[in-house]
Design a protein around this nucleic acid. Structure first.
Lengths: 228, 228
DNA sequence: CGCCATATTACGGAATTGTTAAGAACTGAT
DNA sequence: ATCAGTTCTTAACAATTCCGTAATATGGCG
């Protein structure tokens, strides 16, 4: 197992299909995770961080179209390729899916070789430079998503996971105000329901730990990231 | 610039592109040769013996597909990486090219940084064959993958196989966080199913045996290798 | 002042990881 | 094959950290 080609999340409600695809891709060295419906898919995507998602359209509990819409809405997965699995001749979905942000389609029944080449080319198209780390700097502040670290003037600051995610979100568009609502959806996900004060508490912790005032409150609206 | 990174043959019929790429790669220390079509490419390859060939697909006088086919047919260039240059969205060639023996694709217009990283990783993939002692050192720590040993300040530390593999994985990208998921699949393989605590136990043993704190826990995410 | 939104603080439950020991699985030698 | 020694996995429990909430404080603004 020398180079590893990528991580793939398979989403389908039929265990047989998941098993079949999973087996095929594993043999090619991919790392696999699976989900059985849209809700689970989004949750798993958040912590598995796949390079590509194979998404069945027909599913209970949030269908493929809706799932892809949500995934694309939180911009966390902008670098993730998404391939739809469709029943044969399901063109109406294809057009729909393309508009929303699918990158390719594969019709069932699935042929292993076809699957492999399509996945390969989708990944190549999307390949972020896996080699180099994803980091952003703002003046003396550095946020490194690969290392999960934040440092200020070279000194590391230890943030908890939620704090880190929240900071990443705000820092993804410096200056832009994120509504409280939006923050909840993007950091906590659509299913989880937490009180409003929770955000404040995390914001406070970030401010406290970082020391300087990175995050500006926009009263009645939300928060934004801004270097003074 | 101590070691020279490699020799590259650029094959494209547009002088501007050749010039552009050439300029970029020279600045990184590569030795460059150029050819304007497939026929010339093969001739030059024979006496320049490049480590890597950048091959345009659309060319007069023998196109890229045909050229690569011939190059691969004579086994003289089995150790040479070949990267295709394609117009955007030219997938049909990509699949074709992969079958025949291309190692990667880069779409025009070409971005210099991307070019560099792709070339770097293609070369690295091919270099691996040259068997040399694969060892890494981090401060006082040395990991020798050929000898299967780890030493700290010159003193050997006996790690069990799984412990060694785990440490190697983490050390392969110092600082980068590996998700628990990822660790399981890459160290234990995809079929084996082991409990979550197993990872912790092995981590603990490594920490215990090595003595110093090499491995940092990122709660809710995974582990990373980091010299303090 | 009184209202409203946010800030702050502290606390308990939840989730995650650390630790230990025990036995299963493996290894190599006799 | 048997045995000793090691390695691997698990299970149970301890320790830690994280997260959400609620209660209270603060501060702006009409």
């Amino acid at each position: 197992m020398e180079v590893f080609p990528g991580k793939i999340l398979i989403v389908d409600d039929e265990p047989d299909i998941v098993e079949f695809i999973s087996y095929n891709l594993k043999s090619k060295g991919y790392l696999i995770a699976a989900a059985k419906d849209g809700v689970e898919a989004i949750r798993k995507a958040k912590d598995f961080r796949p390079d590509l998602i194979l998404l069945d359209i027909m599913m209970p509990n949030k269908d493929g179209i809706e799932t892809i819409r949500e995934l694309r809405a939180m911009h966390e997965f902008d670098d993730t390729a998404i391939i739809f699995l469709t029943a044969l001749n399901d063109e109406k979905y294809e057009i729909e899916g393309l508009k929303i942000g699918a990158d390719d389609f594969i019709s069932k029944p699935i042929k292993p070789e076809l699957l492999a080449t399509r996945i390969g080319s989708a990944l190549r198209r999307f390949r972020k430079d896996e080699e180099q780390e994803q980091k952003q700097t703002f003046g003396d502040l550095e946020i490194n998503k690969t290392k999960f670290t934040v440092s200020y003037k070279g000194v590391d600051i230890l943030l908890a996971k939620k704090e880190f995610e929240l900071l990443c979100l705000l820092a993804s568009k410096p200056g832009r105000v994120f509504l409280r609502n939006e923050i909840l959806q993007r950091v906590w996900g659509t299913d989880v329901i937490v009180g409003d004060r929770t955000i404040d508490v995390h914001i406070r912790k970030i401010r406290q730990k970082v020391g300087i005032d990175l995050i500006t409150t926009v009263k009645g609206v939300g928060y934004k990231f801004e270097m003074s």
